[in-house]
Nucleic acid binder design. Structure first.
Lengths: 188, 188
DNA sequence: CCTTTGACATTGCAGTCGTATTGCCAACAC
DNA sequence: GTGTTGGCAATACGACTGCAATGTCAAAGG
């Protein structure tokens, strides 16, 4: 066997470049050549690791949802043991919001992919169960309201993310709205 | 002067075709030729009414926000005189949600444009004040909570729209979540 | 040694894109 | 009539796209 390279590492490197391009110029600027240039590699290499552009897109889509999972896990771990349900929820949701820095870029890419998958139902079908799972988890953390209240909280989070990206809400406003919602849901 | 045609009517016809293409195949499938074909006209005619593609995009963007305004107005007018604040809000928000039929297609287009403008700050700056205005109006309808609660409700609406488009929520679930939120905000 | 195999780079191709240009035709002004 | 002008079609152009084909080089197996 010839040279040994970590396939998955290369693919991640390329996916990173893809996200950079998508965050700065939108998904429609994502082409094999642009991504290759952003990654500092040749276009041929991109083709070597992704036989087709769609393959590359799917990989990047998975990579970005993995990234946010990691972020949530890190934020939760930093809480220590046995946080209150309210604090746990707030921490998780805040970790998912595109408040600043790299999370904002990730948010832009996620938004682009959202629109991308809106016309390709096959790609979005994959993340449907994960949403349902999250709703279930949130419901188990709430003192009352059940799945309906949980779905509302999740939708509020998504909307806050959208308005943060659009610049309609400042990070402070978004967090205020989140805390106010938690006040409503956890009111004694 | 030669032939007389209604310029704005033609532009609207073309914009309708653009939205149809965008709703079915995404914004990146929107090209002069595709739009022209969808509208049943020649590509040259599209060029005649929009000197550049960007001009066409901007027009379509304005057209779609005008459409939703019309929809909201119609729904509110059907309420008759002096509805309760809660019913008024519910009606307006429900009219904006992509629950079914043509509103779903419009929602998909709006989502595509959202991602489109996310990397073109100039285009989104225009609709920022209208969001602020809406928040203000919602706040005036709420018994308490002020702008923060209003911002939360608006974000919840936006999130519901997103999940409706993605298929994660059914229309019934979305309306349940909306009503539950109104219960919280209007609780005595 | 030498052949195989995987890691890249380069090039070519058919197609689509936005746009500028050109030309034809109908309708009005004179 | 004749000329002018707007509505519209057709074409040409250069830039780009995804993808396939081809080539080069290094490392490992026999």
């Amino acid at each position: 066997m010839p040279k040994k390279v970590d396939h998955d590492e290369r693919r991640r490197l390329i996916a990173d470049a893809l996200m950079k391009v998508a965050a700065e110029q939108g998904l429609e600027a994502v082409s094999l050549r642009h991504v290759a240039q952003a990654a500092g590699v040749s276009a041929g290499m991109v083709q070597h690791y992704f036989h087709t552009k769609d393959e590359m897109m799917v990989f990047a889509l998975a990579a970005i949802s993995e990234r946010s999972e990691v972020r949530v896990r890190a934020a939760v771990d930093a809480l220590g043991a046995d946080p209150t349900p309210r604090l746990l929820l707030r921490t998780m949701i805040a970790a998912l919001l595109p408040l600043e820095g790299p999370t904002r870029e990730d948010g832009r890419v996620a938004l682009a992919f959202l629109a991308y998958t809106a016309v390709r139902p096959a790609a979005s079908a994959e993340l449907r169960p994960s949403t349902a799972q999250f709703v279930e988890f949130i419901a188990s953390m709430l003192p009352r309201g059940g799945a309906v209240a949980a779905a509302g909280l999740l939708a509020l989070m998504e909307g806050l993310g959208l308005y943060l990206l659009g610049g309609q809400y400042t990070p402070a406003q978004a967090l205020d709205a989140l805390d106010a919602q938690l006040d409503l849901l956890f009111a004694t």
